[in-house]
Design a protein around this nucleic acid. Structure first.
Lengths: 187, 187
DNA sequence: CCTACCTAGTCACTTTTTTTACTATGCAAC
DNA sequence: GTTGCATAGTAAAAAAAGTGACTAGGTAGG
């Protein structure tokens, strides 16, 4: 029931295939919701049979046919109803932080390496979010956009993603510094 | 298998009851892992029967008896093994951001109210994390602690929690400002 | 005296999520 | 010529997580 709302939000402005959505969930929606492609396909089926989405098959020449989903009136109403509810508190699952919490009992070089990869992932995501942001800003300045733009929602969620990844990078660098100072010079 | 590691990390330094852990998950572990009390009790049982934890019953005078769990050698080894693995990428689930993403199709006053409550929740958590931080710092300055303290892991995860909640507050305030400017003066 | 909240759990049921594997075609690089 | 990646999915089972209700005594406030 929760993924459902994330899908409605992702589909509301643009008809998409499951495959498109899987990509979108990897690059921008990941910011506030995660789901595997399998989850998406299953949920899309259910949403169609519940009348929230309409599907049409598009034949393609040099690739498999695809099914494009769009939000129906009923889906639109469901999304509106969802926005009237109190949202559940954010849940986070971060295995890297579990490893860091257990640092005193951990394999420190491994954890260090994981922090390094996480910094790299965050840099990639940050760049992706910034590209998306540039796309929705178009030629407008940020200030002009917040006065006149019409994609305020995505703008705000991207801002949250950007600050989140920035903090991830800053934190990771702090962690590396402290680790190296305390657990011997690292590789 | 993932909650399991979070529990090992939470228990490694201090024997605790399920109830203690439920509190800890509400106030500090929530920073990087969330779980309901039911989940905890269930997982603790399984971990005990898998030999990762040892339990002992403590009789109490004016309250129900409790079972205190502690990490066994096997549990310690499992935790160490976990820290050698590449952690799975962070997953986030934030219904409020789903609502904001759908802003153009949302009930704006409701979403605004939800942002206000989220700011309040973040302030509370921020305060809780700062209290925990003060506790592990003790009388030492932060600088001294990172040179000589022994709870570096929890220190780092708390820092991450603190910056996360700070960013939540900053973002929420930005969002309110923009909403009010664009969707009419609010309450 | 009543209400509400704290400690310390257990049980049953449902929903969600994850895991693993499989089907096809096309394109580009080596 | 085959390896790897992109497109565009499907299927089934297992594991994990969430929901709601219930037990039971204690403490604090008005």
């Amino acid at each position: 029931m929760a993924l459902r709302n994330a899908l409605l939000a992702a589909l509301i402005d643009r008809e998409s295939s499951g495959y498109d959505l899987a990509k979108k969930f990897r690059v921008s929606v990941a910011n506030f919701w995660t789901a595997t492609p399998q989850q998406l396909y299953r949920e899309l089926e259910k949403m169609e049979s519940d009348g929230l989405l309409a599907a049409r098959v598009v034949k393609q020449e040099r690739r498999p046919d695809k099914r494009l989903f769009s939000v129906t009136e009923k889906g639109r109403a469901a999304l509106h109803a969802f926005t009237r509810q109190e949202p559940k508190p954010t849940t986070v699952r971060d295995e890297l932080l579990v490893q860091v919490e257990a640092l005193a009992h951990a394999d420190v070089p491994s954890v260090r390496a994981s922090i390094v990869s996480q910094i790299a992932r965050s840099r990639e995501r940050l760049a992706a979010y910034q590209r998306s942001l540039a796309e929705i800003l178009g030629a407008r300045s940020e200030e002009e956009f917040v006065r006149t733009g019409n994609r305020i929602g995505p703008y705000l969620t991207l801002q949250r993603g950007i600050s989140f990844e920035r903090e991830n990078i800053t934190w990771g660098e702090l962690a590396l510094t402290i680790l190296d100072r305390r657990f011997g010079a690292a590789s």
